[in-house]
Design a protein around this nucleic acid. Structure first.
Length: 288
DNA sequence: GTGTTTGTTATCAA
DNA sequence: CTTGATAACAAACA
């Protein structure tokens, strides 16, 4: 379940591998994964060079060519982007790469990109929620303006900004924090973790928070996201980074996935209940 | 066969 | 117009 820290980990790794590389071949194995006509998609990438690899919330943005084109990639729940270096030729004509390739690609591989340095990028997606789409500058601007609030860890996300986001809203904290238009990048795992660290109940009405609580929530979100990026994200089910490796933040989770386990703060019991249709973990004793 | 998993959007209501 | 609530999508697993 890639959220901001997982997508940022992938972004950093792909930037190292892909910047200045050109597309030499594209295989589309699942048509509906691509949100453009296949011919359009291929013709706008083949032979083109990759510029920057950036991110907004959970959306990856890869600039392509010099005509203002962008390849957008959203992993949704089970998307993976796995990169394989140029195959190493062995004596006898066998290549070391082919065995690796079968490990990196699988029956859920939807798209394969090849690059002029011999590198290969696999887009795998078990549940087929993820998508790839080519857009121009105007379309990209519209998407970013309409769909994404401030990013944690940036100056746009301040205590004052959070206070305005929360003000007068009658929705529950859990729901508000999952809304990408209000704050970009949080998903189910990091919302539960942030609320636990801020000692706030997921069903608190957003507009009811006091100044001190707003500040605690602000600090908790930033601390959780920052540490999760350092740990290269969380693997709960499906997530792997661009090297096919799991994230290390799983070991630092304090509430997510700990239903009926002991609260690390008070020793009570962690509960799990549905809030707005999402599995929500919290300590009823610590979080008010 | 049933319930559960989640990021995002569509849809409807107020 | 804004806000809120809910269902729907997709596929695998216990």
């Amino acid at each position: 379940m890639p959220e901001l820290p997982e997508v940022e980990t992938i972004r950093r790794d792909l930037a190292d591998c892909l910047v200045k590389q050109s597309f030499t071949a594209i295989e589309i194995l699942t048509a509906k994964t691509i949100k453009n006509p296949a011919a359009f998609f291929k013709s706008h990438l083949l032979g083109q060079k990759i510029g920057a690899v950036s991110r907004r919330g959970k959306l990856l943005i890869i600039s392509v060519g010099n005509q203002g084109g962008f390849l957008l990639i959203h992993l949704k729940m089970t998307g993976q982007l796995v990169y394989q270096n140029k195959k190493t030729k062995l004596a006898g004509g066998h290549s070391l790469g082919s065995e690796q390739a079968t490990a990196l690609s699988n029956k859920h591989t939807r798209v394969i990109f090849r690059f002029n340095n011999g590198g290969v990028l696999f887009f795998n997606d078990l549940r087929r929620f993820g998508y790839l789409k080519i857009v121009n500058q105007a379309e990209l601007d519209r998407i970013l303006v309409n769909n994404y609030g401030p990013e944690p860890l940036t100056k746009e996300f301040s205590v004052v900004a959070l206070k305005k986001i929360l003000a007068k809203r009658k929705t529950k904290l859990k729901v508000l924090l999952l809304n990408q238009k209000l704050i970009a990048g949080l998903g189910n795992i990091y919302v539960d973790e942030s609320l636990f660290r801020a000692r706030l109940h997921p069903e608190r009405i957003a507009g009811s928070l006091k100044e001190a609580e707003i500040k605690k929530l602000y600090l908790a979100i930033n601390a959780v996201i920052k540490q999760a990026i350092i740990s290269r994200g969380t693997t709960f089910n499906n997530y792997v980074d661009s090297r096919g490796q799991k994230g290390n933040f799983s070991r630092q989770l304090q509430v997510y996935g700990r239903h009926r386990e002991r609260c690390l703060n008070c020793g009570g019991v962690i509960l799990k209940k549905k809030v707005a249709g999402r599995g929500t973990h919290y300590c009823p004793n610590c979080q008010k």
